[in-house]
């Protein structure tokens, strides 16, 4: 009897919100859809802007994977991004933990110094980085591509904030239980900040996978290009093969998607885990 009375009404405000969100979503996903669509087109169709190709083909993908250069770039990106991400996860969380949980002279000075590096844009740093790399022989090496990102101010900041929420008593309890300081970090503190670690992993991997400016500057040998640099070299040859650029771009989203899916799970699980607040 009351079913009719209590039928949920949709508030007008909600309709507006949903419409705006839907529009925003479409705007964001369009480039992605176009990328996929173009990668399925033949060279003649590329400037035919329809969303669904007339005769979709996987020929571009076959060509891409047959191209040793692309596989090479893919491996370069995968290796450098993975190493940088692991390094950031390890060192940033170690430094963040130290800043959050140890008292020592100059602690806030160090923290502020690290924070202040966040204010400097990459564009300003690439020239000093380049000069440094040139004089140390790091041009055209993996190390040259990776070194600026191995520890990040942002990651240290993020991890410090999250480690601050780990109760001191827990750490003291672990000390009494006989764990070394390193093991306390590894076995007690780290598992409690998995959401932050996962977010940091996603950000770092994404940022390095898509990094363009610095890898472009520090590499000149095609063998050492990363995927974005390599794809742009597709574009800058006398004839730009957009369908190949888009195919390469489409393939290059796969690792980022995998990283995202894997770590997103940990974010949710981490929130459930550390939901011990009283």
């Amino acid at each position: 009897m009351s079913a009719a009375l209590h039928r949920p009404r949709i508030a007008p405000g909600r309709i507006v919100a949903w419409t705006l969100l839907a529009l925003g979503g479409i705007v964001m996903i369009m480039p992605f859809v176009f990328m996929i669509s173009t990668s399925l087109k033949t060279p003649e169709q590329v400037y035919d802007l329809r969303l669904i190709p007339l005769r979709p083909t996987l020929k571009n993908y076959v060509e891409l994977f047959a191209d040793a250069r692309f596989l090479n770039w893919f491996v370069n990106s995968l290796v450098t991004s993975t190493i940088v991400t692991l390094s950031v996860l390890f060192f940033d969380s170690l430094v963040g933990y130290t800043l959050a949980k140890y008292r020592f002279r100059g602690r806030s000075f160090v923290f502020i110094a690290i924070l202040s590096t966040l204010m400097i844009p990459t564009e300003m740093l690439v020239i000093p980085w380049y000069l440094m790399s040139a004089s140390l022989g790091w041009i055209d090496t993996y190390w040259g591509i990776m070194f600026p990102g191995l520890i990040t101010g942002f990651g240290v900041f993020l991890m410090r904030q999250f480690f601050s929420t780990v109760p001191d008593e827990l750490i003291d309890a672990a000390r009494i239980d006989g764990l070394s300081e390193f093991r306390i970090w590894w076995e007690i503190a780290l598992p409690l900040v998995t959401p932050a670690m996962s977010a940091l992993a996603i950000f770092t991997f994404l940022g390095n996978w898509t990094a363009f400016l610095w890898p472009l500057i520090v590499t000149s040998e095609k063998d050492l290009f990363t995927v974005p640099v390599g794809l742009s070299s597709f574009a800058s040859e006398n004839l730009t093969r957009w369908e190949m650029v888009m195919t390469g771009a489409a393939v290059s989203t796969i690792p980022t998607l995998i990283v995202f899916i894997v770590f997103q799970k940990y974010i949710i699980r981490g929130v459930v885990l550390s939901g011990l607040k009283g």
Partner: peptide, 16 residues
């Protein structure tokens, strides 16, 4: 750990 003591804290401090 070398003191042969054990401690119980106000906020339990058990590993979540």
């Amino acid at each position: 750990k070398a003191r042969n003591i054990a401690m119980v804290f106000q906020n339990y401090a058990i590993y979540p």
